[in-house]
Amino acid sequence: MKDKSGFKKAWPIILLTIVVVISVSGLRYIDSITRSKIEAQQEQKIESMLSGMFPKMTQYDYDAEDDIYTIKTDGKKIGYAFIATGQGYGGDIDILVGLEDETTIKSISIISQKETPGLGTRITESPFIDNFNGLKINDAQLSRDDGKVDAITGSTISSRAVVDAVRTTALEKVKLLNSQKEGS
């Protein structure tokens, strides 16, 4: 009798433990089958974006320490690329930036953003993105801030987030590239 009431008291805890154990092992399994797919997908996304940006690319090297992609054609360097992150209106904006050389941007493309659809999302589209083609890094500012990029009407925050992220990250990466050169 005593045992029975003891079991009755413990039953809720036992049941909760069973449920949690099943849940954890189930999630481990799902994670193990989806993880490689998620990673492969992100890699593929970046590779296709890189080859879209540098059509002549035959291979690329990734420097994990500096977070810079070096783009090569038959072993010859033709440019660099890196990911810049800006604080937009709805959250982080991830931008892939391609550099022709240490002073000039080749082009940019938006990897992910959470801006307001129809307004801020226009940062991913042609007239705004084209501003960056062949732009000098130091000119990557909004026209109202003496730069050469026209902000999108009604989406100044999103536009400025992109421009600022591109310029500051590009300057940082160029510094890293220069110090690499001196080192070698």
């Binding site: 449920v19 949690v20 849940s23 189930g26 999630l27």
Partner: peptide, 20 residues
């Protein structure tokens, strides 16, 4: 608590499947 664990597990599964 048990309902929440069950629901949270299902949501995580959906989350991972959508991500993949």
């Amino acid at each position: 608590p048990i309902f929440i664990v069950i629901i949270a597990t299902l949501v995580t599964v959906v989350n991972l499947l959508f991500h993949a």
